[in-house]
Design a protein around this nucleic acid. Structure first.
Lengths: 231, 231
DNA sequence: ACCTGAACACCGTTCAAGT
DNA sequence: ACCTGAACACCGTTCAAGT
C-alpha cells in the first residue's frame, strides 16, 4: 500500500511526490490535451496523470468545467505582450504575433481557448494593449472598440483554421496534396476545379501573413480616413 | 409492452410511430443541442428524445461522432446560396449573409459547425460560389483562394463571437450593461476604462455590419489594385 | 435490414468520514 | 485544509441473438 504505482497508467510515473497545486493541475490538463485531445480532458483523466484520486481535484478546481477554465486562464495569461513602439501597424501586428505564438505552442488547447469567450478577466490585458495602440493613433474610443473586435475576430478565425488544419495539411505531404487536388478537380464544381492546386495546399505561415496584412491594411486605412475627416 | 411510453422522458411523446431515419436523427440531435447545448449531445440523449433504444442509432449513424458529423453536414447543406448578380461586393456579402442566417437559426449548433473543419465535402458549394464571384471580378485563382480563406476566417471569427455572446450580451439588458461597465471602469487598465461604455455593449447586427464592411472593403480594394497592375 | 438484451469499461459528482 | 471510501446516476460501444 505504500507504493501507489499499481493503478493502470502509462507515461511518466506519479508526479514529484504529489503536492496538489492549481499550477500542477493546469500542467497535467495540458498534458492530457496534448495526448488525448481536448475531448480527453476530464477529472479522472487528469487525476490519472497526477497519480492522485480524482475526487482530490475538487479541492482545487471546480470539476471538469473548472479544468477547462483553468487552462483558458493560463493560456490568456501566458501571452507575452510586447510594449508598443508607437507604430500603429507594427504594434498591432506584434500583438497578433504574440497571440499566435502561444496558440501554436499548444495547438489543441488553443482551439478551446479561442472558442470559449475571451471576455474572461485574464483576457483584458491584450484588449488594453490593442485599445492603447489604437488610441495613440487618434482613433476615438467607439471606433477603437469596433476595430478591435473586428481584428480579433479575423485573428481568431485565422488561428482556428491554422490549429485545426494541423500538420496533416502541411506543404510537405506531397502524396496527400496530390490526392486532395485530384478530388477537387473531379468535384464537378468548375471554380473549385480550376483553383484545385491552390486549394489542395495550405501553408499556415503564408496564410497568416496574407490574412493579417489584409486586416491591418483595412484597419490602418480606416483610421487614416476618419482622422483626416475630423481635421 | 405494446406501450413503450414507460421510460423516463420529458418533453414530447415518442416520435410519430418511430421509423428511424437519418433525417429524424439529425432533427433530434438539433433538439438536444437546442435544449442541453452541444455538450449534451450523445447517443443516449438523442435516443431518449426519439423514444428509442440507444443502440438502435448505430444502425444509421457512426456513434456519437457520427451524430455531430451528421448535423455538420446538414448545416452546411442547408445554406441557401443566392445566385451571383455580377456585383463583386454585393455577391460576396450575400454569401456571407446566407451563412449568417443559418448560423443564427441554430446558434448552439453553429459554434460546433464553425469549429469543425469546413473542408467537408458538403462545404464545397459555398467555396465554389465565392471563387466564382472572385473569378468574375478578374481575380486570378491563386489570389482568389487566399482571399476566400481570409474572408471565410473573418466571417467565422465574427459569427463565432456572435453565437457565443448569445442574447445575454444584448443591447436591452440595461442592468447587465451597467454592471459590466462598472467592472471595466475599475479594471485599472486605462484604455479599457475609457472605452468601457462601448466594451460593455454588444449589438450583434452592428458588429456584423462593421466587420463585414471592413473585410469587403479590403477585399475589393485588393482586387481592384491587382487587376489595375496587370493591365 | 433492423432491433435489442447482456455486458463492459468507463464517466462526473456528492457526501460523510477521516487525518 | 485537504484527502478519500462508498455510492449514485450516468456515459459509449460491442456482440451475439433475435425478428
Amino acid at each position: 500500500m505504500t507504493t501507489p504505482a499499481s493503478t493502470t497508467r502509462r507515461g511518466r510515473p506519479p508526479k514529484g511526490a504529489a503536492q496538489l497545486t492549481r499550477a500542477g493541475i493546469v500542467e497535467a490538463t495540458l498534458e492530457v490535451i496534448g495526448t488525448e485531445g481536448v475531448g480527453g480532458v476530464g477529472v479522472r483523466a487528469v487525476a490519472r496523470v497526477l497519480g492522485v484520486d480524482p475526487k482530490s481535484l475538487y479541492n482545487h478546481v471546480d470539476g471538469k468545467d473548472g479544468l477547462l477554465d483553468a487552462v483558458t486562464e493560463h493560456f490568456l495569461g501566458s501571452i507575452a505582450l510586447p510594449p508598443p513602439a508607437g507604430d500603429l501597424r507594427g504594434d498591432l501586428r506584434a500583438i497578433a504575433d504574440a497571440f499566435r505564438d502561444r496558440a501554436l505552442l499548444h495547438p489543441e488547447a488553443a482551439a478551446l481557448v479561442l472558442t470559449r469567450q475571451l471576455a474572461s478577466f485574464e483576457g483584458l490585458a491584450p484588449i488594453q494593449r490593442v485599445l492603447e495602440v489604437l488610441r495613440a493613433a487618434d482613433c476615438d474610443p467607439r471606433e477603437a472598440v469596433h476595430l478591435m473586435r473586428t481584428l480579433l475576430a479575423a485573428l481568431i478565425g485565422t488561428l482556428l483554421r491554422e490549429v485545426n488544419a494541423g500538420p496533416t495539411y502541411g506543404t510537405d505531404d506531397t502524396e496527400g496534396i496530390a490526392e486532395r487536388q485530384a478530388t477537387l478537380e473531379h468535384s464537378g464544381l468548375p471554380a473549385v476545379a480550376e483553383a484545385a492546386p491552390y486549394l489542395a495546399r495550405f501553408d499556415s505561415r503564408a496564410e497568416y501573413e496574407y490574412a493579417m496584412n489584409l486586416a491591418l491594411d483595412a484597419a490602418v486605412a480606416r483610421i487614416e480616413n476618419s482622422s483626416r475627416i475630423s481635421r
